[in-house]
Write a protein that binds this DNA or RNA. Sequence first.
DNA 1: TGAGTTAGAATGGCACCACCCGTC
DNA 2: GACGGGTGGTGCCATTCTAACTCA
Lengths: 200, 200, 200, 200
Amino acid sequence: MKLTVLSYKGGVGKTTTSVHLAAYLSQRGKTVLLDADPNSSSLEWAEMGKLPFEVRPLEDPGKLKKFAHIVTDTPARPRNKTLRELVRESELVVVPTAPDQLSMRALLKTVEALREFLVPYYALITLIPPPPSKDGSEARKTLLEAGVPTLRSEVRRWAAFNRAALAGTTVREVRGDPRAPLAWLEYEAVGRELEWLSQG
Amino acid sequence: MKLTVLSYKGGVGKTTTSVHLAAYLSQRGKTVLLDADPNSSSLEWAEMGKLPFEVRPLEDPGKLKKFAHIVTDTPARPRNKTLRELVRESELVVVPTAPDQLSMRALLKTVEALREFLVPYYALITLIPPPPSKDGSEARKTLLEAGVPTLRSEVRRWAAFNRAALAGTTVREVRGDPRAPLAWLEYEAVGRELEWLSQG
Amino acid sequence: MKLTVLSYKGGVGKTTTSVHLAAYLSQRGKTVLLDADPNSSSLEWAEMGKLPFEVRPLEDPGKLKKFAHIVTDTPARPRNKTLRELVRESELVVVPTAPDQLSMRALLKTVEALREFLVPYYALITLIPPPPSKDGSEARKTLLEAGVPTLRSEVRRWAAFNRAALAGTTVREVRGDPRAPLAWLEYEAVGRELEWLSQG
Amino acid sequence: MKLTVLSYKGGVGKTTTSVHLAAYLSQRGKTVLLDADPNSSSLEWAEMGKLPFEVRPLEDPGKLKKFAHIVTDTPARPRNKTLRELVRESELVVVPTAPDQLSMRALLKTVEALREFLVPYYALITLIPPPPSKDGSEARKTLLEAGVPTLRSEVRRWAAFNRAALAGTTVREVRGDPRAPLAWLEYEAVGRELEWLSQG
DNA sequence: TGAGTTAGAATGGCACCACCCGTC
DNA sequence: GACGGGTGGTGCCATTCTAACTCA
C-alpha cells in the first residue's frame, strides 16, 4: 500500500501516525517510511531506537521496489507543487487532525486542497482527550456535517505515545505503561480500516 | 514592544501564545498582531469574535506607527530569508514548545537558527499536562541542560484555550469555565516576565 | 513587616486574613502570627494541621527577635487600652470587612478609632459573593465615599477557605478544589499590595 | 418570652436572628429588643427604618414591665460576669452559628460556658449556603455528635437578609425579592419551634 | 408602577478518567 | 507485572442572584 500522511497544521499527530501506520504495515510486508518533513521528525525517531521498518529521507529515497508498503510523512505546509508530487504516487491519503478548533480549521483547508487531486483521502481524529471531554465526538460530528470522509477508528491522547517517541520505538514496544497496549490497538484498528478501504 | 512568536513545529501553542500575548500587551498600549502564518490562524481567530487588538496579515500590514506594541505570529517553518526579515525587526523572540519529545527536538533546531541573529530569544513551555505528569519540569530541565534561555512562566494545557479559540476571544473572556481565569493568569505572568526582560 | 489585623466585628475574615497574610510573608522571611483573640481561632487553626509559620498566643509571645515578620490577629472588640498597645507596635493595620451592611457599619467605627493613632491602616473587602452580586463593588464605592483607604486587592467568598480551616492549612495547600489556587492568588495580591504600601 | 441570643463569635447572624425573632414575637405581644452589643448593630438597624418593636440599649433599658417578650442581643465575647447577668434573666438562650469550621469551634466554647448556668439553650444553624453544599447538614451532624441541643429549624444564607439590614426592616417587609418571603418563613419556623420548646 | 418570568453568570459538588508512585 | 491511593482536569447538574422583559 502507498500511504501519504498529510496535514497543513503541525502538532496533530502526523509523525506519530506515520510511524505507527508504517509499523502496522510492516507486519504485512516490507515497509519503508519516507520522511519529507524539514524537521526530519521521523528520521530522528528512527535514530533514537529501533523501528521495525526503514526510514529514509524523501530527497534520497533510494530504490523502493523491494518494499510492499510505502508511507510518506509530509511537511506541515507543502507547497502546491510538492503536494501534487506527494499525492500523485499515493493510493490513499490520511489527514490526521486534533479535535480542537485550530486544527479542524486547518483540516478543512487541507481537504479542500486535496479535492483537486483524484486521490481518496480520509481524516483521522487523533489526540482525543479522555472523557468526559466530548471533543472527539464533536469533532466527528463537525467533519460529518462538512462532508469530510473520516475514519471510524480514532486515536486518543496517551502519555505512552510520548514515551515511544522518547525511546525511538512504537507504543507496541513501550514497557511499564499499562495503557501502551491500548494505544497500539488503536493504531492497529486504523491500519485495518485503511486496508479494508484500499481493498474495497 | 516588538515581539515575534516563532516555532519550527506546529501545534505547540504558537497562535494561542501570539493572541494572548497581544491581549496582554493591549492592556498597556495600542497593539497589533501580524499574522504571517499561511493557515491564517490568528486572522481566523479574530474573525470569529472580538479581540482587544487588531489582527492584520503580514503581507499587508498597513501603517504601524500608531501601535505601541507589535506581535508577529510566524509560519511553522519559515525559510531562512523570511526568518531573517521577521527577526530583524523584533526586540524579542518567544519560542513556544510543548513538553514532548518531538516538540523539544524542533525547539532545539529553532534555537540553533536563532543563534545566528543577534536577537534575544526565550523558550516558553506550553501545553503542560496536569500533575502528576512531570513532563513540564522535565522539559525545563532538558532546556536548562541544553543552555536554552527559558521563561520561568509556563502555560498549562487547559480546555479553556480551545473554548477561547472557538469563541474568537481570549481565555480572559471565556465564561462558564472556572479554570479560564487561571489560564489567563498564566499568560499574564508570561507577559510580565517578557516586559521585565525587555526593560532589564 | 509588622502587621495587625483588626476589626470591631467578627465573621469578616479576620482570622482567615491573618493566617493567609502570615503565610504570604513566610515566603519572604521567618514569620510569627500572634493570636490575641480570646477564641484562639488562629491557634486552633494551627493545631489542626501544618502552617508554614509559628502561631503563638499574644499573652506569651516569647522572643520575637528572630522573626522578620509579625502578624497580630486581634480580638473582635478590643478595649481602647488594648487597642493602643496592639497598634503601637504595628507598621500597618489591615481592617477586613465583609461587603454587607452590618459589617460596613462596624468598619466605619473601627476606622474612626484608628484615626487617633498615627498608624497607616487599610480596609480589605473580603467574603465577596460571586457575580452577578454587586456587593463587592458597592462596598468599595461606599468606602471611597467615606474616605476610607482601601486595598485594591480583594478576597472573594470561596468554599476553599473553609476547607483550609478544616484541614488546618492555607488554601495554597488545599487539594481537590480547582478554585483553591485562585483563592490563594487573591491573598497573594493582598500581600504584594501591602508590601508595596509599606515600602513606598 | 425572655430570649437571649448569644454567640462567642461574630458574623454568625446574631443580630439578624435577634431582629427577626423579635419581629416574630411582636406578632404575639408587645416586644422589646435589648441591644447589648458594643457595636450597637440592632440599634442602628432600627434607626435606619421601621421595625415592629422597640429597640433599646441594655445599659438604659427603661421599664420593661409592659413588654410580653424581651429579646437580648449580646456582645460577641461577653465576660463571664456579664454573661451570668444576661443569662440569669432568660428563659431560653439561642446560639446562632454558621456552618463553617471557625464558627463551629466557637459555638462549642459558647455552649461549654452555658452548661454552667441552668438555662435551656439551643444552637441555631444560620447562613447555610445553597445546595449542593452540604455544609448545613454536616454542621448538624457535628452538633448532634457533640451532644449540643440544636433547633431543627435552620436559616439559609439569602441576599434578602442584607437587603433588610440595608432598609432597616425585616425580610418580611423586603419588596422585589422573590426569596424574601421564604427567608421570613424560615425565621417564623424558628420562632414557632422556640415557642413550642418554652411551653413544653 | 409593581409582580412574575426568563436568561445569563457563577459556585459547589460529583462522576469519570488519566497519570504517577508506591506496594505486593 | 498488577493493583490501589493520591492528585487533578473536564463536564454536568442544582442552585442563587441580577437584569431585562412582559403583563396587568
